[in-house]
Amino acid sequence: MTPIGSDNADSPPGGLHSVPASTGDLAELLRLSGRGDEAAFVQLYDATAARAYGMAVRVVRDPSQAEEVVQEAFLEIWRTASRFDVSRGSAVSWILTLVHRKAVDRVRSAEASTRRDTTYHQRSQTVEHDSTAEAAQASMEARRVRQAMGSLTGVQRQALELAYFKGYTHTEVATMLDLPLGTAKTRIRDGLIRLRDTMGVGQ
């Protein structure tokens, strides 16, 4: 990795995601970005864009829309980087939270007008596993996460995936999984707690 602050803003994007920056690096890169350091921001982008883009593709489905979402989100990250507070969480979760929120806003607003007509269709096609996962880049971390996801109950995992990767509200998730109203949010929370504790993050 090039030294922080070096002028590599125009260098090619070789080795994308192959050298993920450590947590502390990302926080530092975010801090420098907040001061207008474009080179630091490029490094930050290269270290996180694959996760941001892959997640956005899962949520909005259409790759070109996912691209727009990620672009908007990264411009927002650049603009608001000075508001990041490392005492409240990691840089990567801050970044992905912004991207996810934009992706979900995108699908909700796009679907708002058509959702009524397609409810049956959505309900009948949702639960099978997402095939875009096949294209995911293999990494040790990803494998550990997959194992941790596998340790959740089926309902926890399905509820979590429908919410996070498909952008449905917990009320919609409850309907899709035939859960009593109000219990999907509990399954989502339980699933996240289990994932958190299995992976030993956020302690």
């Binding site: 997640m55 979760s93 996810h100 995911a136 996460v145 994932l195 993050v201």
Partner: peptide, 15 residues
């Protein structure tokens, strides 16, 4: 949020 961020690891795609 830290746990949620992990889920994106498994979704990573080269942009």
């Amino acid at each position: 949020r830290e746990a949620t961020a992990l889920m994106a690891d498994d979704a990573a795609l080269t942009p």
